[in-house]
C-alpha cells in the first residue's frame, strides 16, 4: 500500500482534539508535520476539509511559514543557525562545512536519507555561537571538528 493512503486513514485522530474551525489550521499542520515530518498534499486537503477552510488558504499558510515542509525530510533535520551572533562568529563556514561533509546543499536530503540540511535565522543560543539544532537538540560552540563529531553521533540514531 502506498504510504500516502496509509496517512489519510490515520490523520483524523490527530485532528479530533482541535475545534473544526479555521483557527486550528496552524496547530493542525504542526501536529501533522510532527507525526510525518512533512505535509503531504492529501493531508493538506484533509486539514482544509476538517477546518472548513479553503484548500488555497491552507496551502497559503503551509507555504508562508518557514517551519512547514512539503517534501519528506531525512531521518534527522539539521538546522544551522545563521543569526547575527553566529554570523559574526563564522556560521557561514560551519554551513559550508556541513554541505561538504553531507555532500548536499541547504534544503536537500542526503542520499541515504539520514540528514536534511536547513538554515534557520536564530536559535536564540547566541552566547554559544555558532550553533545548530539537530531535531530538538541544540549544539553550541561549534568548530569544524565538533561538527564532524556531532554528525557522527547522530548517524544511525533513531528519531527522537
Amino acid at each position: 500500500m502506498p504510504e500516502s493512503t496509509l496517512q489519510a486513514g490515520t490523520i483524523d485522530e490527530l485532528l479530533r482534539p482541535f475545534p473544526p474551525s479555521p483557527a486550528s489550521v496552524i496547530p493542525l499542520l504542526q501536529q501533522v508535520q510532527t507525526r510525518y515530518g512533512y505535509l503531504a498534499p492529501e493531508n493538506l486537503a484533509r486539514v482544509a476539509e476538517y477546518t472548513h477552510a479553503p484548500r488555497s488558504r491552507v496551502y497559503g499558510v503551509a507555504t508562508f511559514y518557514s517551519q512547514f515542509r512539503l517534501s519528506k525530510p531525512g531521518k534527522h533535520v539539521v538546522r544551522v543557525c545563521q543569526g547575527t551572533a553566529c554570523h559574526v562568529l563564522g556560521a557561514e563556514k560551519i554551513l559550508d562545512e556541513l554541505k561538504e561533509m553531507l555532500r548536499i546543499e541547504e534544503g536537500e536530503t542526503t542520499a541515504d536519507g539520514e540528514f536534511t540540511l536547513e538554515v534557520v535565522r536564530c536559535l536564540g543560543c547566541c552566547s554559544l555561537a555558532p550553533a545548530l539544532m539537530i531535531d530538538n537538540e541544540t549544539c553550541g560552540r561549534l568548530t569544524r571538528k565538533r561538527v564532524g563529531e556531532v554528525l557522527a553521533s547522530w548517524r544511525g540514531k533513531d528519531r527522537a
Binding site: I26, T51, V61, S66, Q67, F68
Partner: peptide, 22 residues
C-alpha cells in the same frame, strides 16, 4: 506555537497568525 515568520512579531500579523492565517 509560532510557525517561523519574523513578521509575526508585529502585532497585527501576530493576530492573523493566532487566527490561523498567514
Amino acid at each position: 506555537a509560532g510557525a517561523g515568520a519574523f513578521v509575526c512579531g508585529e502585532e497585527t500579523a501576530l493576530i492573523a497568525s493566532i487566527e490561523g492565517r498567514r
